[in-house]
Design a protein around this nucleic acid. Structure first.
Lengths: 132, 132
DNA sequence: GCTTGACCTGGAGGGAGCTCCAGGTCGTAT
DNA sequence: ATACGACCTGGAGCTCCCTCCAGGTCAAGC
């Protein structure tokens, strides 16, 4: 099979073995399968879920929220309205973050252009410093 | 003038007065002007900076990083190369986060459409659960 | 002049998300 | 048989970012 040790799983996800154990401890991950000696064996599904967690986390979701997202992910065949609602709300949050990021990107690009092209005393800086 | 009390500043930024004092304590914000009685008086510049902090924070920047961004923001007239480099790096990080968010958005939209239109047993779920 | 409430300071407390440690087990290599 | 390293568990410790507290000051209303 394609089952791998915890250290290999850590390597492939760039998480630490401590973090992997921690995710299991707080039940963000399900109980990972063990070999006869009691060591964890991660399969492709586990890795996929870990990568989902990482993506969601980079997008500011808390581990608690990610737990909910994972429930959605798993509960696909049981499309309850409450589950839909949660997803919709998360999507709204994502959109807001996308907008924030866009704004921040714009501000920094402005600043960078300024830094590149100017000697001193540019009106844009004043705008950055004093406007909403 | 348009100088306002800490509680008013808190109201306008949706931060708590404790957080406002905390930002000053850790020098993320400059020392805020005081009235003769020693109370803080926030002006438009302060509010602008606070909103910048909030935007950056929603985009996953740590307060330490935001401190650096604010230094850039202030140091506009002194475009040192090291300062440029930092901005460029932050922009790269922002782009990665934008991509992550886009991916996550896509995944959740997929899931949502699925939830809306299906009875049970959809191949997309399998894909979500077992693919990269 | 006294009360009330918003404000001040320094410092302790708290939740999230790890990270580390002690003390023990398993399996391979010598 | 033993030594070694990767693994196990439960629990303590740490950083970040607040949040709360105690004890005190200031300004306005009664």
């Amino acid at each position: 099979m394609s089952e791998i040790s915890i250290s290999e799983a850590a390597r492939r996800t760039s998480l630490s073995v401590d973090t992997l154990r921690y995710y299991e401890k707080i039940k963000l991950m399900p109980r990972i399968a063990r070999d006869p000696g009691g060591r964890r064996r991660y399969d492709e599904r586990d890795l996929s879920q870990l990568r989902f967690i990482q993506r969601a986390q980079r997008c500011n979701f808390s581990l608690t929220e990610i737990g909910e997202l994972l429930k959605l992910r798993r509960a696909g065949e049981a499309p309850r309205p409450q589950v839909q609602q949660l997803t919709e709300q998360k999507l709204k949050e994502i959109k807001i973050r996308l907008e924030d990021l866009g704004r921040l990107q714009h501000e920094l690009e402005l600043l960078l252009n300024l830094c590149r092209g100017t000697k001193k005393g540019c009106p844009i800086i004043e705008r950055l410093n004093s406007t909403e």
